[in-house]
């Protein structure tokens, strides 16, 4: 048998676990060791990535979901950390009537991504020196992600993470979103305030501070728009969320 065919047979055995596939490798107890190693490594990697989801679902339900995921999505990436990439969507199909479940998974996944995202020195509030506010663009640190959520998964996640009793699942107000980013080496998140998502999105699209204020003014009036944008920027600088303004 060619090496290529042997390796494909081996893959088929790991993925399907069928007796005929094991027989192609010669059968025997060794094939079962590899089957077990393969599945164990994937389940424990998922459990490591989705720690709060494990707590919310309990070990048994989590492991059952993980086993179905492993059957449905054999791993393709060379880093085990990436294996959970589609797990959130998969969880959503398993718990269609409990939207908080997939959102807890989403927060687990996102916090993990933010944990290892590119480093960036945040702009210190006292270092803010803008030559021209007209054209200055607010640039967030590269780790910042905006996560729309429909439930109180954030409160549940936080309680699970700190060992407190989590609240029951509830729907969140329409338009709720989380800001997730890294302060130094630690991932943090909080709910976005009114207008915060808009100002961040417009800035990320490259619009200068003046243009952002002008768009805000459409709903707030001119004076309140400038105050709001200024207050938000001040808050973000204090939260080490901004890499540059200019």
């Amino acid at each position: 048998m060619s090496l290529l065919n042997l390796q494909r047979d081996f893959r088929d055995w790991l993925v399907t676990g069928e007796d005929s596939a094991a027989a192609a490798l010669g059968g025997g107890p060794g094939t079962l060791v590899y089957q077990n190693n393969y599945r164990t490594a994937l389940v424990s990697s998922l459990a490591e990535t989705f720690q709060r989801l494990v707590l919310w679902l309990g070990d048994e339900a989590f492991e059952a979901a993980a086993a179905r995921y492993i059957d449905a999505r054999p791993p393709s990436s060379w880093t085990l950390d990436a294996y959970g990439e589609d797990f959130t969507d998969f969880i959503a199909t398993l718990w269609p009537d409990d939207p908080e479940v997939a959102e807890i998974a989403l927060i687990d996944w996102t916090v993990g991504q933010v944990f290892v995202s590119p480093d960036a020195e945040p702009l210190a509030p006292e270092a803010l020196a803008v030559a021209d506010w007209e054209t200055a663009v607010i640039r967030a640190v590269p780790s910042l992600l905006v996560l729309p959520i429909a439930t109180n998964a954030d409160a549940i996640w936080q309680a699970l993470a700190t060992g407190e009793t989590p609240p029951g699942p509830e729907m969140a107000e329409r338009g709720t979103a989380l800001l997730v980013w890294r302060q130094g080496l630690e991932p943090v998140f909080r709910r976005a305030e009114a207008h915060e998502r808009d100002v961040l999105a417009w800035s990320a699209a490259g619009q200068g501070f003046a243009a952002v204020c002008e768009r805000l003014a459409a709903s707030l009036g001119e004076e309140a728009a400038v105050t709001t944008a200024g207050t938000l920027l001040g808050r973000w600088l204090g939260e080490r969320m901004i890499a540059a303004v200019g």
Binding site: S2, L3, L4, L6, Q7, R8, F10, R11, L14, V15, Y34, N37, Y38, A41, L42, S45, P74, P75, S76, S77, W78, L80, Y83
Partner: peptide
Amino acid sequence: CWTRIDGFNSHDLLPLPYTEEALDV
């Protein structure tokens, strides 16, 4: 060992046959 074939990554250290072909690879 080998861990990957085609688009599949096993995340396990899988054994090779000790053949001339495998040695070449």
